[in-house]
């Protein structure tokens, strides 16, 4: 894939403290339009740090990130309108209604026909009956749906979603998955996705990136990873790969300590 076709990150390293290992250590990845890449790893593996760097909000210590050929770290403003982000850690102002919130973001993203764009996204996400309701009165599932609606309002080319279904019941999560799949298929949306729900990752992803302690453990399709780790499903792949990665890391540390003694 050429640099101009999507997101290409190479050898990203980010260290927050000199005496601790890097939060992200030499990760490379690429996503093109119409493709879903899931980033999977345990808590503290470096997923959120990686996404912050890909969004251009955090400067890597080394490595490069190019989005449609543009250096994200240096020229974020040139491509900021082509990306968007949603996370369960975020919300929208509770005192504004669903429609008012989307109206604000339609203006912030300088959409040419804000009213139509908001009407369209309300319809797509079945939010029309909730349009006049304040966000504070919505259920967790409805807020998550609104967050993704906000993220898709600007018709981004690449969308970053950080555990978007973490707080949802299975039915609401399934609704979100279907909507996302439709957008990927019809709007050629590139999706970078993190989740701890392995079944969801398996269903949604074209490729999966497994990371542990900031390092890439494996990358491939769900089938490829299952074959590689001789497992029947992605959950087993996750457990096995993480266990192997930790053993490998502990082994290396032990070796290093051992050689130090000698």
């Amino acid at each position: 894939m050429g640099d101009g076709e999507g997101l290409v990150a190479r050898n990203l390293v980010k260290r927050f403290s000199g005496n601790r290992p890097p939060a992200v250590d030499g990760i490379s990845l690429s996503v093109s339009r119409g493709e879903v890449l899931s980033i999977v790893g345990p808590n503290g593996a470096g997923k959120s740090t990686l996404i912050q760097m890909l969004l251009g909000l955090l400067v890597p210590d080394s490595g490069s990130i190019r989005l449609f050929g543009v250096d994200v770290t240096r020229h974020r403003r040139k491509i900021a309108h082509r990306i968007n982000y949603a996370s369960t850690d975020l919300s929208l102002p509770y005192s504004l209604t669903v429609r008012e919130n989307l109206d604000v973001f339609a203006l912030v993203y300088d959409l040419p026909d804000p009213r139509r764009a908001v009407d369209r996204i309300l319809e797509t996400f079945s939010l029309v009956p909730l349009a006049r309701i304040r966000v504070g009165k919505l259920s967790t599932g409805q807020i998550a749906r609104l967050g993704i609606a906000k993220a898709l309002l600007s018709s981004p080319d690449i969308l970053f979603l950080d555990e978007p279904t973490a707080t949802l019941d299975p039915e609401a999560a399934q609704e979100i998955r279907i909507l996302l799949q439709e957008h990927v298929r019809h709007s050629c949306l590139g999706l970078v996705y993190t989740s701890h729900n392995m079944r969801e990752v398996e269903r949604l992803s074209d490729r999966i990136l497994l990371i542990e302690s900031g390092k890439m453990v494996a990358e491939g399709t769900a089938d490829e990873l299952c074959r590689k780790f001789e497992s029947s499903d992605l959950e087993s792949v996750f457990l096995k790969s993480m266990s192997e990665a930790r053993q490998h890391r502990n082994g290396s540390e032990h070796d290093e300590k051992g050689s130090g003694c000698e």
């Binding site: 909000l57 900021a80 850690d89 975020l90 929208l92 005192s95 973001f105 912030v108 906000k150």
Partner: peptide
């Protein structure tokens, strides 16, 4: 307070 600042930082505004 409304956990919306990050949404603004991601948006194409400075």
């Amino acid at each position: 307070w409304s956990r919306n600042l990050y949404n603004m930082m991601v948006a194409p505004v400075t």
